[in-house]
């Protein structure tokens, strides 16, 4: 019998970190899948109206966004408080809408062009004059499918 008993398998075995990469990859994949990148930074106030007869706007790649509203607080000193159009990351005038539509069409595959929809994200306080001007330009550019993006809720909240 030996006096020195062999120590029973060391003190506090190290916790295996072999699976750490798995966890990290999992998180990575999760965020990769779930994050939608906001392509545009909003430069206008965009408080959407309420409506309840809404349809879903699926297939994000087939949607072109046009924003309109008063410039946000930090742009007001530069651009004033008159409602404006925002295309991509810039303020634009009504005349740029057609060009924007053509440029967007260029980036899409030809067979998808008839399915393109224009989503109008317009602030509640905007006057219809501006919206009608946009619509008129869209008609000229033959982008006839439009969608007034709204929040879901009763109209009495408007």
């Amino acid at each position: 019998m030996s006096k020195f008993k062999k120590k029973k398998s060391g003190e506090l075995p190290a916790i295996s970190t072999a699976s750490l990469p798995d966890i990290v990859f999992m998180l990575l994949f999760f965020f990769m899948v779930a994050t939608t990148m906001r392509e545009t930074t909003l430069m206008v106030q965009n408080n959407l109206p309420y409506a309840d007869q809404v349809e879903k706007l699926d297939k994000k790649d087939l949607v072109m966004y046009i924003y309109a509203g008063k410039p946000s607080q930090r742009y007001q000193s530069k651009y004033g408080t008159e409602a404006r159009i925002q295309l991509n990351d810039k303020f634009a005038t009504v005349r740029d809408v057609q060009k924007f539509i053509y440029a967007e069409r260029e980036t899409k595959r030809e067979e998808l062009i008839p399915y393109l929809t224009t989503a109008l994200k317009v602030d509640v306080e905007t006057n219809m004059g501006l919206v009608s001007d946009i619509k008129q330009e869209l008609r000229k550019a033959e982008a006839l499918k439009i969608n007034y993006t709204t929040k879901t809720g009763d109209v009495s909240k408007n």
Binding site: F30, T36, L57, V63, A119, R139, L144, K145, T149
Partner: peptide
């Protein structure tokens, strides 16, 4: 998470403009 996350979609009133 893959199954349960739905990426938020926009909703709105769809309309068709008349051609010129």
């Amino acid at each position: 998470f893959l199954v349960t996350t739905t990426i938020e979609t926009d909703k709105g009133i769809s309309r068709k403009l008349p051609p010129i």
